[in-house]
Design a protein around this nucleic acid. Sequence first.
DNA 1: TCCGCAATTATTGTATACATTCAGAGCGGG
DNA 2: CCCGCTCTGAATGTATACAATAATTGCGGA
Lengths: 248, 248
Amino acid sequence: MSQEKTVYSKLRSMILNGVFDAGERLTELKVCEALGVSRTPVRAALLQLASQNLVIGQSNRGYTVRGITVEDVWGANVVRSVLEGAAAGMVAREGLDGDVRDTLQQSLKDYGRLARHVELSDDFLKNHSAANRVFHDTIVTASKNESLFRSIETLAYMPVQINRVVFASDRDFAIQTVQSGLAEHQSVLAALLSGDAMAAELLMRTHSQKALRGIEHVQEVLGLGPEYRQMPFHKFIGGLGISVVAAE
Amino acid sequence: MSQEKTVYSKLRSMILNGVFDAGERLTELKVCEALGVSRTPVRAALLQLASQNLVIGQSNRGYTVRGITVEDVWGANVVRSVLEGAAAGMVAREGLDGDVRDTLQQSLKDYGRLARHVELSDDFLKNHSAANRVFHDTIVTASKNESLFRSIETLAYMPVQINRVVFASDRDFAIQTVQSGLAEHQSVLAALLSGDAMAAELLMRTHSQKALRGIEHVQEVLGLGPEYRQMPFHKFIGGLGISVVAAE
DNA sequence: TCCGCAATTATTGTATACATTCAGAGCGGG
DNA sequence: CCCGCTCTGAATGTATACAATAATTGCGGA
């Protein structure tokens, strides 16, 4: 892999996992020494991280790291649910293409098979995540709105895939979430098929927002007070003995 | 200004105004020669343009320019209206801070004063754009959702400020749009004040979508058929004798 | 002691030489 | 004639020297 991409993902992972303090100044040279590369790939990596709001660039003054709080992750998920809801509404309004409908129905079948035998194995989690992803991505893509697609993609630079993390630590929560997720996917598809845009938007938004339940669940499990939203996200997740994995 | 920023804005403007063909390959060296700078600032500029989806980067193979069609601009505006609607809903749900309310009311006053004497002067257009912007930005900021804020900001890399352009070419359209805009701002504020989240979201979304009317209006003025959505945006706008100005 | 100016220094901005990679042309064998 | 290999070259990837800039330090005077 190229240095630029290596630097990018290492830095990204370090930031998300709190290796740097929030607000810490991040000079190019410091990164170069830490990772043993020249400034060129570091500059490129920092530029990309800045466009993802993981570091904040000041003209002529380098970068500072932006600490990611639970609230940030929460907020990103809220936006994602709004956008996915809008996508569903558009698709319902325009009508379902045959192949899109087929893809969605297939993903529901896959999802249904998984829902009958929930496990906590890596394999299961991967398959579930994949089936879920197909459903969501297909709808977003079917909206044929490039800006919408890109906006959601950009949100994924935040650690938004919370459920996959939480599942690993709580079987009961996983079972319940997977099963209600199936029902929700089904009702979204029904709304899409009937062309009911308002219902599709509302159902999809509500379903997508369920990811937030994962955050609340972790809060409950860890017995945290209401100030938990200001916590660095990696510490929050760290309470389960899990580290933040970069998306992508 | 630094070379990097100069290159960035020149390239950006060139892309938006169709100096390059859609899909044209854009090598670093070509840009260097065209603008007379070294590869370093060019690389940085291209990286940023890629993150804004104005060029598409292929690993090891440089970049190709992405032609911006009317549909792209339309789509970006649709997303913006969804997000601004969501912001209004959140603000209504959380309740209006005193200073936010004051800012909104002040912007309504300014807007109202402008609505009584619509002109097509540069000064008027600037003031109107500013008052309008304050209203929209204040609501988005008041939602206290960084991801939401950033998503909207990112959309502005597309040429979304369509009305300002259209106003300049059609007084009647400007008068009508400004006046209905005032009424819409007022009803949004009323919904925010009464804490009616659903109404606030719907009203704001609908209002924000009015920008699309500007596009339709240009279509009508130019007498274009339904295939106009596939047109390069700069040609579309060029029909009015206007070039695309970069936001920011 | 405090303020303001100037020298210093840390850090980014820029140019460029060299390394690496990948697409495509050209050649040779089947 | 076609397939596949190698070689070539154009382009990006990387390192680094040098320039420009802005914060900081330290000095001197009030």
